[in-house]
Design a protein around this nucleic acid. Sequence first.
DNA 1: GTGGTCTAGACCACG
DNA 2: GTGGTCTAGACCACC
Lengths: 137, 137, 137, 137
Amino acid sequence: MQLVIEPNNGLPIYEQLVRQIKFAVAEGVLLPGQVIPSVRELSKQLAINPNTVARAFQQLQAEQVVHSLRGVGMAICPKAKGHCVSDRRTLLAERLTTAVHEALRSGLEPQQLRDMFETSVTNFQTDRSSSATENTR
Amino acid sequence: MQLVIEPNNGLPIYEQLVRQIKFAVAEGVLLPGQVIPSVRELSKQLAINPNTVARAFQQLQAEQVVHSLRGVGMAICPKAKGHCVSDRRTLLAERLTTAVHEALRSGLEPQQLRDMFETSVTNFQTDRSSSATENTR
Amino acid sequence: MQLVIEPNNGLPIYEQLVRQIKFAVAEGVLLPGQVIPSVRELSKQLAINPNTVARAFQQLQAEQVVHSLRGVGMAICPKAKGHCVSDRRTLLAERLTTAVHEALRSGLEPQQLRDMFETSVTNFQTDRSSSATENTR
Amino acid sequence: MQLVIEPNNGLPIYEQLVRQIKFAVAEGVLLPGQVIPSVRELSKQLAINPNTVARAFQQLQAEQVVHSLRGVGMAICPKAKGHCVSDRRTLLAERLTTAVHEALRSGLEPQQLRDMFETSVTNFQTDRSSSATENTR
DNA sequence: GTGGTCTAGACCACG
DNA sequence: GTGGTCTAGACCACC
């Protein structure tokens, strides 16, 4: 599982963690029952404050995505995948809709917005494939 | 000019003001040289604190979108439109791109994302036309 | 007499007027007894608010630089020149000293400051002579 | 770092803070990466309102002199020194030039102005050395 | 009337 | 603990 933290992207760090872990579960990258890295380990790996990781775990626990196994660590809940799949849709749609509505409300033409959208999608794909190439060479 | 303030939409109020005023200038709703409503008036109209409005104006002034005329009020800078048009593009694209990339990174298929996008656009248009109808009846 | 008003140079407009009129008296450009332009005329000529001119005159009157002649206008006080000459020194020295002290306090070397000073003097002279040439051609 | 606040010296307090912090960075008294005193601490030390300090920081942040580290404080930007060195020159020169030009425009002889300038420099040095003596005795 | 500054104090989010 | 936002209200300078 690869987690990407961007300070100052608007979302607090713990929130970014929560989202990405949910998404990983939805995607099947994290499987029910699987034990995830400890607070200590994650905080070291991501170079962020342990409290921040703990807070993310705490929220995930409250939403029954993970549960703690005494003396072992945190594990993905058996029934988490269902929640996460629908959560993912909601969370992503929320953000997208906010952006779209702001744009249209501000007077941008739908067609211009579509172009902007396609550009974003294309950029993502080229970024990804180029960095993949980077790893291969 | 109609400004819409949504507390707790993530963006601070003064920031929402800044964006919307820039957009209004970009759109031509606010014209260079035009004097905009006073701090006191806006704050009353939007039911927010005058200092919050002042802060937005302060930022707009720093970015040379408006300038203050002593004893008169704030006016749109002559050359503001250019900045605002490109700013609008940037600001909207930033948000959209953030949302798009997060979605794709999380494993959502481009086609699903496109559907989501079109749904947002459609929702906006139906919302708008229905509220327009509301005004007519 | 040529008055130069610069909005936003830090000093309020009426203050700029007061200073420049005092300086003109000190320099002998305005002579004791001489009647100066009316509020209305000055405000039109300088494209500023009449109240602003009036406020400057009011302050000059309080400092006995000018006095009002009923039905005629404002005239320079007979004994004004003395005040103005010493005032000029004080006012100019104040500003200069403020600037110098700030610079030295901030760690600028005296020699660098001297260079900066001479540059300012030279710039002024070249500006002036070039604009004089402009008038001659 | 010693900051000196003078209420009513013409410049607003937050502006004085901005200038002095930039100057300190330019001078190398504040180093890139270094965390500066917190809003609360500075406000207590200078006996001014926290919001006033915050406003200064806010402006410094906008000019990329400092950046905020969540939960830690404000730190000097890595590349700030360059900006600050040139900023310092500009800010000081602006003030000095304003004073010089006003003096010359008002008819003061360059030589008189030079004398005035040297007096200011000398005064500063004697002030400083006498207050240094004061600390030693 | 206008904007600008400053104070005071509350609340929140983050680490 | 940190900074960020918002509210409230006062006072000032300027036009």
